[in-house]
Design a protein around this nucleic acid. Structure first.
Lengths: 214, 214
DNA sequence: GACTCGGGTTACCGCTAGTAACACCGTACG
DNA sequence: CGTACGGTGTTACTAGCGGTAACCCGAGTC
């Protein structure tokens, strides 16, 4: 009885929670990362305090919201990363998966990359470092793990893999962000250019002669 | 007469502006990017409306503030990038310059990378893409220009250079951010690892054998 | 019927960005 | 001398935010 009642309650609470998250999703997609708690509550057809009862504060709601999308994106990236193909193919497919995702739903992307961070709370001694979006960190760690598992890097491989994981993710992110804003080329070209960069074409290219003043 | 008077006024206004910017700098360095206009005005020994008369709105102040630091950092990066040395050396020295800068003044770094963006104004149809810090964009464009000038990339070189410019800057940024938070290794090691990545070590490394399930 | 308890609301606090309206003060002009 | 004026500064305010305390009401229970 007690347990069943508790599960009933919990089930109901979970359903509510999901409904609230979906409402929040709609509002964030419509209004961007600046969506207010009032607006979200209104969209959900209720008022602020119950939002706060469910998620604690705005950060909690946004974290929950971000977690869903992040998990979804990470799992599709994992699939591309773990495919049975050679390395270059896997790299290109992973890049393309990421870029296709941000291209398809740019608002979600923007929300994930810029999680409001308006916390009015204890901002004293603010977190220097780790200010990036959690999505970037998680992608970096994931990629590091895959590199460490599958690439033979010799001594110091773990540390090297982590540096590379975060570095490659950052490369992908910044290039994707720029590309999304300017659209200077097709997605396939971008993927190819980035893979070429990772494949050492920068090191292999010759110096340009007759440049200005050199 | 008229002109001299105007210059007098302008000079005075410029001095005021500089004073205000320095006060704002102190506050931002102390309180992080969440520094309020009230706090900045108090630090400068004046009240809010003056700040607004000088900078329009918070975005304007932050933009002016960011521009100073950004210009300073960009010029030192330029110096490293333009040094008369071979490419690998220049790359390492540029990476090191950037990392040393963010290591030396992490609060400034954080401010530059996360420019508040609280604009309450017309957020309808918010700028998707170009949401990154302007510093990243400018670094990317600068690097692209240097690559285009000095590296022979064959046909399509301009576009390739831009992709690489933004990509490399993103790599540097993400790795630097992660490194600043966790400090998993020395700066020199980080520089070396990133340069190795750019030099194609990922492509050159062999597959790891005996991995889990593979 | 009294009593609790979970879901919901109203009404508020303290804060923020931003602004309108007023006050002071040196200066040119009649 | 008086007076109108532009620049510099202030006080006092609005609108809206995140967050919360206090209350309210219906359902189940003894």
């Amino acid at each position: 009885m007690d347990t069943t009642q508790r599960t009933d309650q919990q089930r109901s609470a979970d359903r509510r929670r999901r409904e609230l998250l979906e409402a929040a999703d709609r509002v964030v997609l419509r209004d961007g990362p600046q969506a207010s708690m009032n607006a979200i509550a209104a969209e959900a057809g209720i008022t602020k305090p119950i939002l706060y009862r469910h998620f604690g504060d705005k950060g909690g709601l946004y974290a929950a919201l971000a977690k869903r999308h992040t998990d979804a994106l990470l799992s599709s990236l994992r699939a591309a990363l773990d495919a049975p193909a050679d390395r270059r193919e896997r790299v290109e497919s992973t890049l393309d998966t990421y870029l296709a995702a941000i291209e398809a739903r740019p608002q979600v992307y923007r929300f994930l990359m810029h999680p409001a961070e308006g916390s009015t709370g204890t901002d004293q001694g603010f977190d220097v470092g780790k200010h990036s979006a959690p999505l970037l960190r998680r992608m970096g760690e994931d990629l590091a793990q895959v590199i460490e598992e599958r690439v033979d890097l010799g001594p110091g491989s773990q540390q090297l893999a982590r540096v590379w994981g975060h570095g490659i993710v950052g490369m992908m992110h910044a290039a994707g962000d720029w590309w999304l804003g300017e659209r200077p080329c097709s997605r396939a070209e971008l993927v190819r250019s980035l893979a070429d960069l990772l494949w050492g074409r920068l090191a292999a290219a010759g110096d340009r002669v007759g440049g200005p003043g050199f």
